[in-house]
């Protein structure tokens, strides 16, 4: 009987290696996977608190309109009516809260405009789009267009 097992010894060692590999994996898993992983679904539950703890950076459209109603009124009549202030001016929660005397930097007009208005066959035909070099050359968009009411009357 002993010699019979003797012929299996290499296989038993190989099996032991596999078992050791699985054990190392399980130990590694318990070490690397956070305890609260999967409490709600396939993510670390604590990530929700982490996300909640991050400061809010955007003030929201209503906060802008409180002080800048003149601009808001102008925009209401124009094609950019539904583009929110912070889409172009950036996140301005600290500005709106008055926590610091922050004067928002003026956006780089041309770079911002071409992001939406460069001609592309993938855009709906009715969407205003231009070949930038042909349309404006080296001129800045705001030399002709008011970004809050872009149509030239």
């Amino acid at each position: 009987m002993g010699s019979r097992w003797h012929n299996y010894s290499h296989l038993i060692r190989m099996a032991a290696l596999f078992v050791a590999g699985i054990l190392i994996f399980l130990v590694g898993r318990s070490f690397f996977v956070p305890a609260d992983f999967g409490v709600y679904w396939h993510y670390r539950a604590g990530a929700l608190d982490d996300a909640r703890a991050r400061p809010i950076r955007f003030a929201g459209q209503a906060a802008c309109v409180e002080c800048h109603s003149d601009i808001s009124d102008l925009r209401k009549t124009a094609r950019h009516a539904k583009v929110s202030c912070e889409s172009c001016h950036g996140a301005l929660a600290t500005h709106a809260a008055g926590d610091e005397p922050l004067k928002p930097t003026r956006p780089n007009g041309k770079a911002l405009c071409v992001g939406c208005h460069t001609k592309s066959p993938s855009k709906p035909v009715a969407f205003p789009q231009i070949d930038v070099a042909d349309h404006a050359g080296d001129n800045a968009c705001i030399e002709c267009h008011n970004p809050h009411a872009p149509k030239i009357s």
Partner: peptide, 15 residues
């Protein structure tokens, strides 16, 4: 590579 086992008897190879 042999896992320290040098048994290559006919029976071991048959297995």
């Amino acid at each position: 590579l042999c896992l320290g086992v040098d048994n290559i008897s006919d029976e071991a190879l048959r297995i």
